[in-house]
Design a protein around this nucleic acid. Sequence first.
DNA 1: CTGAATTAGTTTCATATGTAACTATCATGC
DNA 2: GCATGATAGTTACATATGAAACTAATTCAG
Lengths: 153, 153
Amino acid sequence: MPNALQALELEKFLPYRLSVLAQLVSESLHDLYAQPFGLSVTQWRVMAALGRFAPLTASDVGQRIVMDKVAVSRAVAGLMKRGLVERATDRSDRRRASLKLSARGRAMHARIVPLALAYEERLYKALSPDERLSFNALSDRLFAHARTLREAT
Amino acid sequence: MPNALQALELEKFLPYRLSVLAQLVSESLHDLYAQPFGLSVTQWRVMAALGRFAPLTASDVGQRIVMDKVAVSRAVAGLMKRGLVERATDRSDRRRASLKLSARGRAMHARIVPLALAYEERLYKALSPDERLSFNALSDRLFAHARTLREAT
DNA sequence: CTGAATTAGTTTCATATGTAACTATCATGC
DNA sequence: GCATGATAGTTACATATGAAACTAATTCAG
């Protein structure tokens, strides 16, 4: 029967499900570091990127964590104001500035990472080791495919 | 080695991965209906809920699509202004109002649903039928577990 | 009844975010 | 060199969102 009336069951609709799951997880994690450390989600992500890969320019950060340059700029401004991040202008190209965590920033980072990993571990308890691998592989494929679909347009 | 220095690899960190995937998918879908129909994500979700389960009160909508009442109220206000949704105050409890799509709203809904389903189908091409089932089962388990973790706190 | 506590929904205010315009610096063609 | 265009990053404006205060209606204890 071509052109039958189509129904959309939101509860089973993949984009919706992904959105609700990601939001719940993101909020749960945010609960762990928002109040004690006063960080927003974007600020924490910038810190995580710098904690692992510093020094990075603002653009590098944006590329790594899929965040546009305005968001990075604002997060960095907030982190600098609190002395958690240091900036050094590149002398060979003064448009650029390399960023890294300050001593205070590293200390805070070192306290948050275990909380984040512990939450991830608790979350993963929903799945067996095999299932974790499977879930990650499948979500990687979905992500890669979604990106090609988007670029194709 | 207990208490070894822990590293957080953002690219492999489950909450981060879920967030990036959901955001990419949500934006891709939004591209399909934002410009032609002038709907925000929240407005579209409210329409989808009403298209499938009307009549619903604002609270019912919020429960179904995991959206707080303020967001629902604002989305409904926008939809009513455009004549896409109709509201009727409940006579037995005048705090409540049941909502449903207007004729125009139903027509728009009927045009968007096939676009949404087609996108989902394209996205699912990344996975085999078995893998789709598997991914959905695993993400359901993650979701349920994340919710119990959150409530436990 | 009547007043305290609940509930549905809206409004307000403060903050977050996206888009576009802007500044400053650098690369390139001529 | 020096106009043109590209790039790094910031600022401005308009819109979105969340939390809390608020309004209106209902429930319930006594």
